[in-house]
Structures are given as C-alpha cells and as structure tokens.
Design a protein around this nucleic acid. Sequence first.
DNA 1: GACCGCCGTGTAATCGATTACCTGACCCCG
DNA 2: CGGGGTCAGGTAATCGATTACACGGCGGTC
Lengths: 331, 331
Amino acid sequence: MATIKDVADRAGVSVATVSRVLNGRSPVAATRDRVLAAVAELGYRPNVVARALRTARTRTLGLVISDLRNPFFTELADAVEQEARRLGYSLIIGNAGESPEQQDDQLRTLLDRRIDGLMVSSAGTGSEVLCEIVASDTPLVLLDRSVPGVAAPCVRAEGRAALTELAAHLAALGRRRPAVIVAPAGTPVGDERLECFRSALAAHGVALPPERAVASPDMTPAGGRRVMRDLLALPEPPDAVLAADNLMALGALDEVRARGLRIPDDVALVSFDDVAWFAHTDPPLTAVAQPTRELGRAAVHTLLERVEGRPAESVLLPSRLVVRRSCGEPA
Amino acid sequence: MATIKDVADRAGVSVATVSRVLNGRSPVAATRDRVLAAVAELGYRPNVVARALRTARTRTLGLVISDLRNPFFTELADAVEQEARRLGYSLIIGNAGESPEQQDDQLRTLLDRRIDGLMVSSAGTGSEVLCEIVASDTPLVLLDRSVPGVAAPCVRAEGRAALTELAAHLAALGRRRPAVIVAPAGTPVGDERLECFRSALAAHGVALPPERAVASPDMTPAGGRRVMRDLLALPEPPDAVLAADNLMALGALDEVRARGLRIPDDVALVSFDDVAWFAHTDPPLTAVAQPTRELGRAAVHTLLERVEGRPAESVLLPSRLVVRRSCGEPA
DNA sequence: GACCGCCGTGTAATCGATTACCTGACCCCG
DNA sequence: CGGGGTCAGGTAATCGATTACACGGCGGTC
C-alpha cells in the first residue's frame, strides 16, 4: 500500500509538499498536478490511522444504542449514520443489547478508539462510565433517553401534542377505560409520557387509575404480553391500551389474538413508537410516531457543535399521532 | 489523557518497560506491580490509534451489509458483532442501503481505516472496489450473497433440505399451483433456490411454470406486493406463494389482505428468511429459516483464519423449515 | 578470579502522516 | 544594483505506541 513518501518520490517533491497539496494548501498548479498525477498512478489513499495520531482527530463519531434489534433503534442508527457520512464523518455503532455491562464495554471501546464525539441511547440508568466520559470532556450527546446525573445535551421527542390528540381520538371513539403498558422502571421518559397522557385524558373526563398503568419487566414482546394478560384479567378490563414501545405493543397484540379477542372491536391498541412493520399488522396499528430520522440528524448536529467547541443545547422534537385502524374507525 | 510516558515517569521506569509489562513480556513481579499501580492511578488506557500505526493491526473487522433496516441483516450484524467482540475484535458496520455506490463508499471508508479484515453481504452484482480489495489481499469473506468474479470464501445458507421439506409440506396440504416471488435479477443465490424448489416440487409431480416464478423489481414490501398482485391476476392464480425474502413476503401479505383474501384458506404464503416478526403476524408465517446467528459466527471465524494467514474455505450451512400456520394445518 | 552468558531494562528507530520553521529564489522598489 | 518582502517548498519534530539493539549486573563454571 502506497504511502505519502512513495507519492513524494514519484512526484519529485518532499512529503510536506504532498501533504500540502492534498490538504489544499498549495496554490501552485504545476506541482499540484504532478502530485495529483502521482496519487492517481499509485492509487494512494492517506493512512487515516497516522493522520488521526498526528492531528488527534479521527473524524469518527460513536453511537451506542440500547438494542440494535429493536427496529426503532435500527432506524435511528441508520439516520445517524447517513447524516454523519453526509458531513464527512464515519460512525461506529455499539450495541448494548439492553445490558448495562455490555453498554459500558462498548463505551470503553469507543473511547479507546479516540472517537471525536459520542451519542448514547442509554440502557438502564446512570452508568459510571458515562460520568467518566462527561468528566473527561469528550463531547457527548444523549439520544432518546435522558440520564439523570449526566450533564450533557439530550436529543429526544416529547409526546405532549400527540398524546393529547390520542386522548381526544380515544374519547371520540367512546373509549372510557384506557390503560398503559409502561416502560420498565427507571426510564424517566416513560414516566413523563405517562403523566402527559394522564392529564390529556383528564381533560376529557377520563381517568387512568394506577392499576391500569402497569410497568413491564423489560422492553420485549414477552414483557408486553405479560402485562396485557394482567390488564385483561382485571375486574374492569381496559377498552384501549397504549404500549410505551413497539416491541411491547407487539407482545400485547399477540396476547389479544391468543385470547380470540378482536382489535379494535374488543380492545383498542396503540403503540408509542411507530415502525414500518405496524403498517403491515392486522389491523394496522395506530401509533405515536417519533420523528426518528430527524432525531438522528439533530443528534449529529448537536454533537458536532460540541465537537467544534461551541456550546450545544438539548433538542426536543414533537411526535405526531398516526391514525390507522387499531382504535376503530372515526365517525 | 494519560500516555505511556506518564505511566513510565510515575512508575520510575522507561516506556519500553511499561509496554512490555502491558503486553505480558516482563516476568519480573516487582517492576510489574509498580507499573500496574501507575496504570491504575492514572487511569491509563493505551492509545489504540498509535498502536495500530506501529503494529499495522487494528484488531477491527468491517462488515458491509446491503440493508441495515432489513431485520434479517440486522440480526446478522448483531451476531457478527457479538462474535467479533468475544474474540477481542471490534466491528465497524457499513450500511449499503441496497445502493452499489453507497456500498463502494462504505468499502473505501473501511479500507481507509485499515481494518484487519472485511465481511461483505453485497448489494448488486460485482463491484470494482470488491475486486480491488481481493487484489490488495485484504482478507475478505462474502456473507450470505456470493459475488461472481470475486475470489473469496463465501459463508451462506443453502436451502435444499428445507425447500424439499417445504415442497412435501405443500403437496401434503393439496397445493398444486405454487408460485415464487423471486429476488431481483442478478442474485445468484436466488436462482439457485428457485431451481432447488422447482426440482423438489417436481418430485411430487407439481410443476412450477415460468409465469409463476416472477422476479421483483427490488427487495422491498412494495416490490413483493406488486408481484403478488400480478400473480393473483393470472388466469390460473397460485394457491401457494413463496417469497424469496422477508420484506417481499410482507408486501405479499399486504396485497392478499387488501383483496380480502384469507391466508391460508385462499392462498398459502411462505417466506424465505425467518424474522422474529413473523411469529406475530396474522396468521404466523411459515418460513424457511436461515441459521442467521451461526452464519454470523462462521463468517467471523472464517475471516479470522484469513487474517491470521491460514487458508479459509467457504461455509454452507443448512436452513430449516419453520412450520407455522400460513399454509394450513397439517392433517 | 576471569570469562561467558543470561536477563532485565534503557535508548532510540520506527510506523505515516501534519506542520513549525527555515531556506533560497524571485520580484519590486528605491 | 542592493535590500527587503513574498512565497514555494524542504527539513525535521511530533503524535504514542512497539521493538531491535545495546548495556550493565549478576551468577555459574573452570
């Protein structure tokens, strides 16, 4: 593999000149042409490892997500990668698989690779490594999930408007006994969404008592299914269920089907998180859609502000309600 | 951030000694303890960029996949990452988004980062960059999709046994007019699977005429849906359809539903590729399951053979039929 | 007691780039 | 025609690690 020295020899100049040409700091056409010709002939590509060592910049960002196999995060990661690439950065994705230990492992690996900045959609609550990162002032942006005690800008979606709309939608369809399958304990976003939904319902004179807001043990279809079973076993079972995440919604759907109940006739189902698959379920699921791709883009922009030394602020984007058919047809 | 020199100063030894201790080449307990104490006190972590420059090894593998948002590839990527990490390597994932240009872009980026080896699940047919990679003898393994003209070991699944089983399954359920939604042109694996299925059907006296083996324009739900529409418009519409990929199967399912037909009563549907979601569709889809995680693991092992200078061979793993309810209940 | 060999450790070269600093050619002006 | 300014481009230091080589101290052997 050709090095800058080979190019210099071939063009009959010094390595410094080659470097200058390649970085656009040589205005002299004659030498520049010779150098570029040599680059082309040798198929030279700069060694980014050496460059990173010298400049202390890798032009690489890191993204640690809680679960790569969750389609919401897959799309988020894809959006982040595209935007990073568009702006001349590479992205390294680390998958935490919803395990705090694996998350820490991924964080360490990314730090060791001297990435220029880090985005984290944290699994579980505050991590020691995250605090170290803040302390070491590596640019950090929290994505989708804020972490208490970690002072870093957070890019996420809020659901107030969409949940207000959802409450109205359900009320208009005559649903009086809503329930929520809440995210596992320790997800502050989840609590916030719950309160939002509760107050939006109250505005229509509909109550959301604690026994109908049940936390799932984990963010999986199995967890969602379990909670749905418990909800349906209630003396007054719900006539509409909101699941706080797409995987739990899926599990809830399974439980409803397994009991031979029909959606939306017997119970309405809504998911927080819209993923492409929901358009293909039977019936297509009404969902609160987070602006996934915008979140990814905003995260990259916010992070690059920090990378380039400017202060950066948190970003809160609106979600919107996507009405399909899982709550019944509007009149 | 502490460097090896800081550690050396603190421990009162030279950088060479620190390096030797850290790489296990110093058997002397006394100095080793001093060095390790200094490492701990300073929170020293070796600069992998510098190490990579010196040793010309990054302990990083690259994976380029055709579409990150396709759940089959997501799971594949996850499996590859886990196995790589288990063996002490990092993985950088590049998403080609089913675009050959973007694939080439990702390949170049990975080469520039001086990864030790590369796994590619290629979008489209032979790429110039892929040939360059083979020529530059960067260790390369093809994953899931072989590429004609690229001499590299290929790790993929074959479907003979599963398709034979599927043919028997369909025959036993009285399906006489099977059809196939074929992968877009230029996917050799697709043709092979088609032939496999055709001959397996022939063994049961069932024909698969060309008009019932239609290639989709692309690997998307929309493409699958379009082909399904054409198939159902045939004078003799099929009574069982095999889609060559999970996304096309999804589109096919939509079209069947949109027409008010029922699965399996009016038409049976089978997907090549099993993904977690298929257990949650209505009805749950029968599918040919590739051994996704094993494929990922095998790809890493094969690649590391090449990385460590040993010859490596192609791997062909068996698929298996997962019978759910989309072809009808067995008698 | 001298010599040899072994072994632990330090010195310095090296990987491939970037860049501060210096040199020398050329031009312009007085 | 000489001095100073401009500027292209070369020399060499540098980033943080690894590692070949040199060196010195110690122990064993004759």
